[in-house]
Design a protein around this nucleic acid. Structure first.
Length: 741
DNA sequence: AAAAAAG
């Protein structure tokens, strides 16, 4: 059927509602309450339906009374709800339409934004979690007056929030300003550490505190004695002291004439002694350094090569010496990169980098008037046709860094006549690990593409194919999607990848992990021979070696000098708690103004937590792979739009997802991998904003956590916390009484 | 355990 015949064609530019509706019908079928008229086949509903006559025996009744009374009430509530006779709450229209499916995952009405104050906990009406999950919908009038706690507190409306200007909080006098002046003084006064840390970034570049971060002196950090030695020595090895400063040989920002790595002095082992790459023969002399292959390890302990030579002071001196050069090679997790000094990118415009006028204009509209360092680093080489690997801290602007030059490149490569040809095959492919990320990338790339007459389409699973196939048939230039559906459509002959000239792998290291690697390899084998490959990630490391070795040719590797996660604008904290306090502490942490993202390890736990928060009167929605796509999209959108301020997610939301203003990330379950830690944390503190990341662990996990932070190169104080501790208030409120702070 | 194709 022709695509334009799809209902979506005319009616719903946004297909999500349509899918949502469909799904809800499906879901509704399973709902007991649906049997309001007494469905023959369904036992329980039929009981209800025929209760007066047929089965009205005492035992049955009693069973209901004992166990199912609430359930029946729920069924009534659902029916009432469906009939629309449920009074709108808060003067808002009844919400049934947008949440018809009441399946377990569909967090019903209560989750939607409503003023918190008029919600209440459920108390006795809800005997058990399981039961009340099913019953949430019919929770009757919520006179939330019985929630004293919140009321005693200062109102937490958004207005108050604004008053939370951190400025009036006492600064940490003993600590050099961390960066922009607008950065709230973090009143974690009880944290003695860090005092001796140099300013974290330049004061004059608040929005982009990138590479200007002075070298961290690890030596003099006294705190965290309980932690295993951080082996600063190993870290130290990151300095390639004896390499000539590159500043001199690449003055202008034109990257094309940038000296290739090959003309550098051989990166012998001596340069990077402590990193223990030394014994590896140069791979290909003409190739930019790529230290992929020799690092098998992903283990905690051995992340840094043992015996990392160089003593601490050597390293320190060495690092200092290099700190002021324009270009420093930095080995970050085994991947050597050309480090671009942030300062060197100042004053450079997108136009200078080779992007056309239209694109530059759209970028400005997208809020990127001038390039961020990672963008300044990668755009020109991408336009020059190189295979590029790039590592840019979370929230540093990677999407534009590949998206804009991608559009420019295919624009240039296309012959004018062919541009809009019906049924043309796609020229570029962007792959992402999650559908939400694919959607988000498209939101950035699409306007850029459209500004020059190119079309994008999203190809991802969880939604009907027809619309996507229709778009393909019509002809698109850029495909953005997830691997499964792309392979699926390709196998069906509905997607021809053979003309794809540029492939982008966002979150490339993740895409190289176990479940993703093979699909990625299959897809990459389908694209045009010699297609340009771009691999991006905040945690780009040798995990991508399998792909790099097979598919990339002399890739250039870029990152921003001095930029790592800990150089950002995020405060990290670890709360060591009693397991039995966990639920309550979590609730008190999310009970705040401001957007909060909570990570949990399993889908079920995200649901449970969202439920728990909801019951405490804090709107929360869940995001995980068990939800249908409509709900996923919708729940994420709720956070984005601010209709809800708490999102509880699995790692589906760990990477790439950008939501403005998430100022607190809570890890209800600590991640197992440092990379996961970095990505989850990176949902806050984006584009230079501040944020806090709190990880809850039990005492038994302290050691592991320490090691993981070590691997992540993140500095976080550990605090023992119990229910009601002031520290919790401090973290959530940021509006702590200055006296106390 | 989660994610990515349906179903």
């Amino acid at each position: 059927m022709p695509k334009n015949k799809k209902p979506a064609g005319g009616r719903a530019q946004n297909f999500e509602p349509r899918y949502g509706k469909k799904t809800s019908y499906q879901d509704a079928k399973r709902r007991p309450g649906q049997a309001s008229a007494g469905t023959a086949g369904s036992k329980s509903p039929s009981h209800r339906g025929y209760r007066p006559e047929a089965e009205d025996t005492a035992p049955t009744k009693q069973r209901w009374n004992a166990q199912e009374r609430a359930g029946r009430a729920e069924a009534r509530g659902i029916r009432a709800h469906a009939q629309g006779d449920r009074p709108a709450r808060d003067g808002r229209p009844a919400r049934r339409d947008d949440r018809p499916a009441r399946s377990y995952d569909d967090r019903p009405a209560r989750r939607e934004a409503q003023p918190r104050d008029d919600r209440r906990t459920f108390g006795d009406a809800r005997p058990s979690y399981r039961d009340d999950r099913a019953r949430r919908d019919d929770r009757p009038a919520r006179s939330f007056d019985d929630r004293p706690r919140r009321d005693e507190r200062p109102a937490r409306s958004n207005d108050d929030r604004s008053s939370r200007s951190y400025g009036d909080r006492p600064r940490r006098d003993d600590r050099p300003a961390r960066s922009s002046d607008d950065r709230p003084a973090r009143s974690f006064d009880d944290r003695p550490r860090r005092d001796d840390r140099p300013a974290r970034s330049a004061d004059d570049r608040p929005a982009r505190p990138y590479g200007d971060r002075p070298t961290r002196s690890f030596d003099d950090r006294p705190r965290r004695d309980d932690r295993p030695a951080r082996s600063s020595d190993d870290r130290s090895t990151r300095s390639y002291g004896d390499r000539p400063a590159r500043r001199d040989d690449r003055p202008a920002r034109s990257f094309d004439d940038r000296p290739r790595r090959d003309d550098r002095p051989a990166r012998s082992s001596d340069d990077r002694s402590t990193r223990s790459y030394g014994d590896r023969p140069a791979r290909r002399d003409d190739r930019p350094a790529r230290a992929f292959d020799d690092r098998p390890r992903r283990d905690a302990g051995d992340r840094r090569p043992a015996g990392g030579g160089g003593n601490r002071s050597d390293w320190h001196a060495d690092t200092k010496a290099k700190a002021h050069r324009d270009h420093v090679d930095v080995v970050h997790e085994k991947l050597q990169a050309e480090a671009v000094q942030a300062e060197a990118t100042e004053g450079v415009t997108f136009g200078d980098l080779g992007l056309g006028e239209n694109i530059v204009r759209v970028l400005a509209d997208l809020g990127a008037p001038s390039p961020f360092p990672i963008q300044a680093a990668t755009i020109a080489p991408i336009l020059a046709g190189k295979d590029v690997l790039a590592r840019g801290r979370t929230g540093s602007g990677k999407t534009i860094a590949f998206g804009a030059p991608l559009v420019e490149a295919i624009l240039r490569s296309q012959t004018a006549g062919k541009r809009r040809e019906f049924g043309r095959t796609p020229r570029a492919l962007v792959l992402a690990p999650t559908r939400e990320l694919a959607l988000q990338i498209d939101r950035t790339i699409q306007p850029i593409a459209r500004s020059v007459g190119l079309f994008t389409t999203q190809i991802y699973g969880g939604v009907p194919q027809a619309r996507q196939v229709g778009a393909l048939r019509k002809g698109v230039d850029i495909i953005i999607g997830t691997p499964g559906r792309i392979e699926d459509l390709q196998a069906q002959g509905k997607l021809n990848l053979s003309d794809v000239e540029i492939v982008v792998l966002d979150e490339a290291d993740h895409m190289s992990e176990l479940g993703f690697l093979e699909p990625m390899q299959r897809i990459l084998r389908l694209v045009k021979d010699g297609a340009q490959k771009l691999l991006f990630s905040a945690t780009l490391d040798r995990e991508v070696a399998a792909l790099v070795d097979e598919f990339l040719v002399e890739p250039a590797v870029y990152e921003v000098a001095g930029e790592d996660q800990d150089s950002g604008t995020i405060d990290h904290r670890v709360l060591v708690i009693d397991h039995r306090d966990k639920a309550e502490i979590l609730t008190s942490l999310v009970d705040r103004a401001g957007k909060t993202l909570v990570f949990a390890r399993t889908r079920a736990y995200t649901e449970m937590l969202a439920e728990q928060f909801d019951d405490a009167g804090i709107h929360a929605v869940a995001l995980h792979g068990d939800l249908n796509q409509a709900k996923r999209t919708r729940n994420l959108e709720r956070l984005t739009s601010g209709r809800v301020s708490v999102l509880v997610a699995t790692d589906v939301a760990a990477r790439g997802i950008h939501v403005d203003d998430i100022d607190l990330v809570i890890q209800a379950d600590a991640p197992d991998e440092y990379k996961t830690y970095l990505h989850r944390s990176g949902r806050t503190g984006r584009a230079g904003r501040t944020g806090t990341v709190v990880t809850l662990i039990t005492r038994q996990r302290e050691r592991r956590m320490t090691e993981m932070l070590d691997r992540a190169e993140i500095d976080a104080p550990f605090d023992n916390v119990r229910i009601g501790d002031d520290l919790l208030e401090e973290i959530t409120g940021r509006q702590v009484d200055p006296v106390r702070a």
